[in-house]
Computed example of a mutant assay.
Amino acid sequence: MSETSNPTTGTLKERISEGIKTAMKARDKIRLETIRSIKKVIVEKETEVRPKGQDQLTPEQELELLAQQAKQRRDSIEQYRKGGRDDLADKEAQELAIIETYLPAQLSPEEIEAIIDKIIESVGASSPKDMGKVMGPAMKELKGKADGKQVQEIVKAKLG
């Protein structure tokens, strides 16, 4: 199931349109449904920002939107697994994998730790009380590049 277009070139909207065409040609139902759901969220968000004088989403807004979609899928997977609904969890996992093709590459735990170490040093954090001081800058720097829960766990372990 490889994309014929490179999911990292062009605007997100262009990449989504290409993805829809590719999925239709391949008769890939789950990919098509997932990409259409992303397009729907993009259109809704664009409608939301239009009154503010913005014609289209900024790359940061696109990244945030995709990260939210990925987080929703991760949360659903966790809930479905807890509820013994592996069939639904598997479908969400497939959708998550498709969404991740449109996100920037995720950082490895080692790369995340290195960034968090720098932040801890720069804000002078030394105990679990300083978690807030570290999480703000960490999430800002790692937005879209790492899962928030993973970042939180690493920060907790480093300050604990």
Rank of each mutant, 00 (worst) to 15 (best):
V49A: 01
I119N: 03
E60C: 00
T4C: 12
E18C: 11
A23I: 07
D117Y: 05
I20T: 07
A157M: 12
P59S: 06
V134Y: 02
G19L: 08
G83W: 03
S122L: 10
E46I: 01
A89V: 05
I20R: 06
E18I: 09
T34R: 06
I30R: 13
K82Y: 10
T34D: 04
M24G: 10
I116K: 03
K145R: 15
L57E: 02
K145S: 06
A93T: 14
R31F: 09
I119R: 04
I154Y: 00
I42D: 01
P109Y: 03
R36W: 08
L32F: 12
T22G: 15
V155Y: 02
M24W: 09
I77Y: 01
G19I: 04
G144R: 03
L103Y: 04
D90Q: 11
D90Y: 10
P109T: 07
I16T: 09
I119Y: 00
G136Q: 10
E62F: 03
K140Y: 05
S37M: 07
S17G: 12
T11L: 05
D87L: 03
R74K: 13
L107N: 07
M1D: 13
A67K: 15
I77F: 02
A93Y: 11
R73D: 13
L159W: 04
L159D: 03
M135G: 00
L65D: 03
K39N: 10
A138H: 01
P7D: 05
R73L: 14
V155T: 06
T4F: 13
K39L: 15
T22R: 12
I119W: 02
K52T: 08
T9I: 12
Q79E: 14
I16E: 06
A114P: 05
E110K: 14
I112D: 02
E48H: 11
D55S: 09
I38N: 03
I154L: 08
N6I: 11
S5E: 11
I42W: 00
E60W: 05
I77G: 00
R36A: 11
P7Q: 07
G53Y: 02
T58R: 02
I98E: 12
V134F: 01
K29E: 11
L32E: 14
P128C: 00
A125E: 03
I115K: 15
G19V: 09
A125G: 07
T4Y: 11
R74D: 10
R50I: 08
V123I: 03
D147K: 10
M131T: 12
K140R: 12
G144W: 06
T11D: 08
A89E: 06
I116N: 05
I120N: 05
Q72V: 09
S108M: 05
Q61H: 04
E121S: 14
A89I: 06
Q106R: 15
D28C: 01
E18N: 14
S76F: 13
I154T: 09
I16R: 08
Y102N: 10
I38H: 01
S5L: 11
V41A: 13
L103N: 07
Q152Y: 15
K158N: 02
M139A: 04
S108Y: 08
Y80I: 03
D117E: 13
G10R: 00
D75Y: 07
G84A: 05
V151Y: 05
R31L: 09
E110R: 12
I120Q: 04
S37G: 04
L159A: 01
S126T: 14
S127T: 15
A146S: 07
M24V: 09
V43N: 07
G132S: 06
E141L: 11
G84T: 01
Y80E: 15
I116V: 13
K156H: 08
Q56W: 11
